[in-house]
Design a protein around this nucleic acid. Structure first.
Length: 824
RNA sequence: GGGCAAGUGGUGGAAUGGCAUACACGAUGGACUUAAAAUCCAUUGGCUGCAAGGCCGUAAGGGUUCAACUCCCUUCUUGCCCACCA
């Protein structure tokens, strides 16, 4: 037989799948549906090993589910808007559109070479007007409901990308894309009111038991709910008051000063006309210029100035100084805090620096009657209230509740919940994105583009010089328009949408990708949604996954999306976050020059070898280290499987007059092989179901090894099983072998094999015998042995006797069918 | 600073209370070959012993248990996330 010609075979079956429309699906109530989704790629030009790993995991699962009888939706598309295309256009003096579509063509071909089971008729690209039209439509729906709004705010500005960024896109004070430092800028920008959903986004995380815990933790962290009390401090000699938020109201009697963020609006008012005015304003100005990175680094010395004004602590009417300091952030809470230096480390450091009053109000149970001046650091633990008026003597946790209630009664405070989540800034001052469908009219103000006028098409003619900001600003035909209300002259919004909007609902578009009546067909979406299995990188744990959850809830609320089948409003039921692919412990990157190209691997070893290797090397969730030599091992294994066909075809019927001892031996071998075959079906099915592909593969390898060890018995059933079990992982070779085994239809029309529990039963038990917990012997017994019989058998074992050395048995522990431990 | 995850042969990893190192990669030796490739066979945690065997061994230390890579505590290291969040 000819050797395994993967190039030819892989091409043959990819053609076959396409022509037979094997993976093109439609609604079918006779079978359970299964929606298997991977995070669609940004078309940067080439697929990389990260994509290969992500999509191979998904593909194995999709094919596995097909064979299990599910109606499997497994789509792909391209997240095609975004800045790299624009940068490439500037660099190559071309157009982002041309660049993007070229990249898409290239990547599509590469994906096809991998043999993924996509329904290619559902492919979407977010940069097509048929797609982004619905971004605009959803935006308008949000605008109608007050969830899209424009406001002037201090926003994150990346000077190098020349655009604004969402909070989620600022990592360590730097731009997530170009890693340059982000500046703060006062701009009027479009926001989506994701905070209107904060409570649901938080609480519904508990309805996602099949999400990785750390993703849930990261989202909880990001939404950042904290409960506490808002307290109102009157300002001495003024009608104004300062609102502060605290989670430690039990320390209120220890508040010895109040601190405002330097940019707090009250600061200017407080210092007006005071001797401190110049100093304070200068300080505020200096802090405002500081970047987020500098300001938020924890080891920086806390700086601040006294405003000259005093506040009144409402619980004891004490007058305490008001300071402005850089360690208080305007973005969080009310931009003002009550400072309790004895019980908050930041306040402690600041108070020490500026010689402010310290008063202990919660006693450290380990150090009673301490002098506050002797403290080396703030005590943030629990204890008993002291110096706290009528609350003295209470444990602080109890006091916390009582003080809050009392303050509400006295109307000097109110229980409050604070959230870290901010509204989503979606305006981008870039060309290559969805135009925000809004019009500015001098007479009518902000006017939304009427639905019938959608899409607002991105004009083709634009110049990409890289200078002078957004190219859309310079396109007169685009900017100048008429007001839909008064028909007078008006201007279009030139900001485009953040591309994370595109990916916040693409999984819905896949359900009916061609629909020109709606973003998605309600019936189709009701059938396919929610996504049963979502697979992608951990880097989207907050951004994309949070935004998609928000969009899904919104679309359900406006009656677009019917998720009654799943009883919730979450888009993704199961989530798998795959690990990265590394080379020698480092991320593959151009600058490091350590990129392994999937294309080259396909050429040398075939897609099946690549798929097999990438799954075998490590469990999907953890990072894997690429090893050029190990993929050869995968290739060798596939050849070893392939050669089984030779063995089968060369087989002669067994000689009739075999000696009886030989016959028995053959029978034994056959039994052994059947047992191993059924055991492997069981193990591999369980492993694939749980994404344990590496052990699934090692189990298949063991079965292949067993076949070779019993090569002179009847191996046909075992070989057939190997081919079936391997088919989701190495689909091309499996199809070819399946055909060689005499099957006329695709292996993916065949049912997933089942095991017979009776056949995997062991005929004997091999007991592990321990003496004092150490393995000392092995004993074989029939299945139905009684405990007494077992005991006497074991105690008569020579090795056991030696180790027991006639000592009395203290305990005799039997683990059924496995192990015995004799304690002496 | 807080949170989460992980640490097992030369390497990737397996075992999640019950024979630690399955399955591979690599290495060494051998068979086949004029030779090479491919393939096949054997060995492959450490120490010790002629051998049978014994002892040690899952980052370090302690604990629970008849039994611990697995559970608990302490420490160290690495990775990720969050972070002057009041």
């Amino acid at each position: 037989m000819e050797r395994y010609n993967f190039t030819e075979i892989e091409k043959k079956w990819q053609e076959y799948w396409k022509n037979a429309r094997l993976f093109n699906v439609s609604m079918d109530d006779s079978r359970p549906k299964y929606y298997c989704l991977e995070m669609f790629p940004y078309p940067s030009g080439k697929i990389h090993m990260g994509h290969v790993r992500n999509y191979t995991i998904a593909d194995v699962y999709a094919r596995f589910k097909i064979m299990q009888g599910f109606n499997v939706l497994h789509p792909i598309g391209f997240d095609a808007f975004g800045q790299p295309a624009e940068n490439a256009a500037i660099k190559n003096k071309s157009h982002p559109s041309a660049w993007t579509w070229r990249c898409i063509d290239f990547m599509r071909r590469e994906l096809k070479n991998m043999g993924f089971s996509y329904d290619w008729e559902r492919e979407v690209s977010t940069c097509a007007p048929e797609y982004y039209r619905w971004n605009q439509w959803i935006f308008l729906k949000m605008y109608e409901r007050g969830l899209a709004y424009k406001k002037e705010a201090l926003v994150n500005w990346c000077p190098s990308c020349e655009t604004t960024l969402a909070n989620e896109e600022v990592i360590d004070g730097k731009c997530w894309r170009c890693k340059k430092e982000v500046k703060q800028k006062d701009l009027k920008q479009w926001f989506l009111k994701i905070t209107a959903y904060e409570e649901r986004l938080l609480n519904d995380l508990d309805k996602l038991p099949h999400w990785p815990e750390r993703v849930v933790a990261m989202q909880k962290n990001w939404i950042g709910r904290s409960e506490g009390v808002e307290i109102y401090f009157k300002i001495k000699g003024s009608n104004e008051s300062i609102t502060v938020f605290t989670t430690r109201v039990d320390t209120i009697f220890g508040a010895t000063y109040v601190v405002l963020a330097p940019e707090h609006p009250l600061v200017k008012k407080l210092v007006a006309g005071k001797p401190q005015e110049q100093e304070v304003l200068k300080f505020a100005e200096r802090v405002a210029k500081e970047s987020k990175v500098v300001r938020s680094s924890a080891d920086v010395k806390k700086e601040g100035v006294f405003t000259g004004a005093y506040a009144v602590n409402p619980v004891n009417n004490e007058e305490i100084p008001i300071w402005a300091a850089d360690y208080v952030l305007m973005e969080y809470g009310s931009g003002a805090v009550m400072a309790v230096p004895t019980h908050d480390q930041r306040d402690f450091l600041f108070a020490k620096e500026h010689n402010l009053t310290l008063r202990i109000v919660i006693e450290d149970p380990g150090r009673k009657d301490q002098n506050p001046q002797d403290l080396a650091e703030a005590y943030e633990g629990d204890g008993i209230q002291v110096n706290s008026g009528q609350f003295n003597g209470l444990p602080n946790r109890e006091a916390k509740i009582k003080i809050a209630a009392w303050m509400e009664e006295q109307r000097i405070g109110k229980r409050a919940t604070n959230w870290r989540l901010r509204d989503w800034l979606v305006s981008r001052q870039r060309y290559w994105g969805t135009p925000i469908p809004m019009i500015y009219c001098d007479k009518c103000g902000i006017v939304p583009v009427p639905e019938k006028d959608l899409p607002v098409v991105l004009p083709e003619k634009a110049e990409f010089s890289g200078e002078g900001g957004n190219p859309l600003l310079k396109i007169k035909e685009f900017v100048n328009t008429t007001c839909p209300k008064c028909k007078g002259p008006a201007r279009r919004e030139t900001d485009t949408m953040a591309t994370f909007i595109d990916s916040s609902w693409y999984f819905l578009r896949y359900c009916s990708p061609k629909s020109d009546r709606a973003a998605f067909d309600k019936k189709e979406a009701a059938y396919w949604m929610p996504v049963d299995q979502y697979i992608g990188g951990i880097e989207h744990a907050v951004l994309h996954l949070l935004y998609s959850r928000f969009f899904t809830k919104f679309l359900k609320d406006i009656g677009m999306l019917d998720l009654s089948a799943s009883g919730g409003d979450e888009p993704f039921i199961n989530l798998l976050t795959q690990g990265m692919v590394l080379k020698e412990g480092e991320v593959m990157s151009k600058s490091r020059g350590n990129i392994v190209e999937p294309d080259g691997m396909i050429k040398n070893y075939g897609a099946d070898s690549l798929r097999l290797y990438i799954l075998f090397a490590a469990p999907p969730e953890i990072e894997m280290n690429w090893d050029d030599r190990a993929i050869e091992g995968a290739f060798r294994f596939l050849n070893r499987v392939w050669r089984l066909l030779d063995t089968l075809n060369l087989k002669f019927p067994p000689a009739v007059d075999q000696p009886s001892s030989e016959k028995e031996k053959t029978l034994d071998k056959r039994k052994e092989l059947i047992r191993k075959t059924h055991l492997t079906i069981k193990e591999v099915s369980e492993d694939i179901q749980e994404f344990k592909f590496n052990t699934a593969i090692s189990n298949i390898m063991e079965l292949v090894n067993t076949i070779y060890q019993n090569i002179d018995s009847d191996i046909e059933e075992a070989v057939k099983t190997v081919v079936l079990l391997l088919s989701p992982i190495c689909p091309h070779m499996a199809e070819e072998m399946w055909q060689s085994l005499g099957n006329k239809e695709s292996i993916f029309k065949a049912p997933w094999p089942r095991f017979d529990p009776a056949l995997i039963q062991e005929e004997k038990i091999n007991w592990v015998v321990q003496v004092n917990g150490k393995v000392r012997s092995n004993i074989e017994t029939p299945l139905d042995i009684g405990e007494e019989e077992l005991k006497s058998l074991i105690l008569s074992d020579e090795r056991v006797k030696t180790w027991m050395n006639n000592q009395a048995i203290k305990k005799f522990i039997v683990v059924p069918k496995k192990l015995v431990n004799i304690v002496i």
